[in-house]
Amino acid sequence: MIGQAIADGVLTGAIIALGALGVSLCLQILRFANFAQAELLTFGAYAALTFTGFATAGVSIGPLSFGWQLLVAVALAGIATGAVAVAVDRLVFAHLRRRQAHDLTMVFASFGLALILRNLVLLLWGPDAHYYSQELQIAIEVLPGVRLMPDQVFVLGLALVLVLTLHVFLRFSRLGRAMRAMAESPALARICGIGTEAMVRWAWVASGALAAAAGVFAGLTVQIRPEMGANLLLPILTAAILGGTGSLFGAVVGGLVVGLAENLSALVIPTSYISTVPFILLLLVLWVRPQGLFAPAGGR
């Protein structure tokens, strides 16, 4: 029982972590909590659904429920969602930045955008639930009492690859280093000749792509619905804060903690109260360690 809860917790945690990474990036580069991040996740899931619609999810690879087409669709959805994020920035946030609007005005705008995006998805794709593949997978008992579906193992692996890629990118690439410099101090970065707007754009592309991956994974392991992102919003924001707003590593750990806490709490509290768990975690962390678990030294 506990084993299964841990396995499920890690899986949910991985999806939350990908969403939280996007929020964390946005907090670092743009310095506001993006309430619309979860809707990018929904959009990504539906974009991938549309791409698989052209080619079907494909002949399944080995034990997986989908074929290479879905992998291509994930990549395309990542690009599409990144493009949407950049477009939204161009249309709304850039305008507010030029006006030097208050940070909270940005939060607020993202709050309104979340509503628009969610309902656009509803308008475009309708209210019905979808799956990438009708074919149902039977879980394999990997450890006594712990069952996992091949898709879930795949999702975990791919999430890990994505996180590592992001890490390597930020650590070693020129662009990544510029982004980190910008996160540390926008003014200094500008003096060093780093184009702020370009960095902002890349931050949006990255968080859009991460959101799309999270969305596809959530759709693959649960179901694709217009409300799927909105339902993940609180866990994602909690994970980002839990990890410390300056730390990408923290966002990943934060995601795992939230996922594990939700699934483990099901063993002791009635399942209908599980959705309150992220909030209780959030209050606890803000009370005890408001800078988050892994805030960089001297963070805000």
């Binding site: 506001f32 909590a33 959705s275 992220p278 209050l283 803000l286 009370w287």
Partner: peptide, 20 residues
């Protein structure tokens, strides 16, 4: 819990309380 912290935390916490 939240008012001594930065502004977006209040936003997130109040959003959370409504859900809860």
């Amino acid at each position: 819990v939240t008012l001594r912290l930065r502004g977006d935390y209040l936003a997130i916490a109040t959003f959370g309380i409504a859900t809860v």
